[in-house]
Design a protein around this nucleic acid. Sequence first.
DNA 1: GTCTATAATTCGATAGAC
DNA 2: GTCTATCGAATTATAGAC
Lengths: 193, 193
Amino acid sequence: MERKITRERFIETALELFHNKGFKATTMRDIAKALQVEAATLYNYIRSKQQLLDDLVFEIADQFHDGLSNIYNSSYSPSEKLKAIVDLNVRLTTAYPYQVALLVGEWKHLEEVRQQAFLDNRGSYEQMVRDIIGQGMEVQELRTMDLEVATYSFLSSIRWLFSWYIEQGSAVNPVELEKQMSDFILKGMQNND
Amino acid sequence: MERKITRERFIETALELFHNKGFKATTMRDIAKALQVEAATLYNYIRSKQQLLDDLVFEIADQFHDGLSNIYNSSYSPSEKLKAIVDLNVRLTTAYPYQVALLVGEWKHLEEVRQQAFLDNRGSYEQMVRDIIGQGMEVQELRTMDLEVATYSFLSSIRWLFSWYIEQGSAVNPVELEKQMSDFILKGMQNND
DNA sequence: GTCTATAATTCGATAGAC
DNA sequence: GTCTATCGAATTATAGAC
C-alpha cells in the first residue's frame, strides 16, 4: 500500500499526461491528482514545470543525436547506414515512447533560447541524414531522386512511430517492426539497375 | 492606410500564431497585438477561442475526408488511388498549410465531445487508406507487406508535408512536388515480379 | 516529504461608452 | 466596430507548519 511518490513514478505520470493533453494543457494539479497528492508536493522533485520539459526533451534528443553521430561516422555503406537509422529510431521509440512523443510535439514550449538549441540539434540530425542519402545516390546505391523530398519523406515516415506504438498498447515486437519498416522505406530508395 | 480588420486577416493571423506557438500558448491578446487592436475587438469575429479552433479544424478535416471518399469510391485501380491520395494531400496542404498544421498538431485541444468526433473522422480516413492498400496487395499491384506498417508508413510520410512546406517559405511547385512524392512513396510499394 | 494557504500573474470573456 | 475597464477563474510557484 505504498502511497509514496518516487521520482520515476512522477516522471512516468507526467509524460503520459503530456501526451494525452499536451504540455501546456496539463497542469501541475493534473499531475498531482493522478498521483493522489497535492500540487505543492511535486516541487520536491522538480524546480519548475518548464525545467521538467527541458530535461525530458533534451535527454531524448541527445540520445537520437549521439546515436546518429555514431552511425554517420561508421564505415557502413550509405544504405546500411539508413537501415541502422531506422533501427535506432525503433529502439529508442519502443524504449521511451512517451518521451519521443514529447520530443516530436512539445518542443515549441521550450523557452526561447533553449528552443533555438533544440532546433540546432535537430538541424544537425537532419543534415547528417541528408548527407547519407546524398552519398547513397553518388555511389549509385540509391536511385537518383530529389534530395530534399527523399530526406523529408524518410524522416517523416519514421517520425510518427511513437503514436502508432502507443496506440497499439505497445504490443509490438521491436525486431519485427524494424525489419518491416526498413523493408518498406528502403525498398523505394534502392537502385535496381 | 486601412487599419480595419477583416475576418480573413484575423483568421490568417491566428493560424500563423497557432502554428508558431501552439493553440494553448497563443492568447487572444497575442492575436490582438499582431493585428494592432485590443483583445475585446476580436470577439466581434468569433464567439470563443474554443469555437475558432473547432471551426478551423473541422473545415479542413472535412475536405480531406470528402476528397478521400471520392477517390475511394472511384473506379481507379488501387495504386492509382494511392497516387490520387498523395495528390489530394499535396493540393490541400499547399493551399492551406497553416490549417493543415492545426489539424495535425492541435486537435487534442478540441473539447471532449468534438475530439471524439474528430477521431472518428480520422479513423474513417485511415480505414479507407488501409482498404485501398489491402486491395492493392490482393490484386498483386502492390508487394505483400505487413498491412499495418504499410498503412502507417504511407500516412506518416505525407503527414509532415505542411511543416516542410511552411519552412520552405512556400517556394515549391506543387505539381513537381506531387510527382516527386508519389514517386518516392509508391516505388517502395509496387510489385515488380 | 507532504500538507494548507496564498501570493502573483495571466487568461478568456463581458459590459457599456463612443 | 473598437475601445476602456474589469470580472472571475485558473495557473505556477512559494512560505511555513507538521
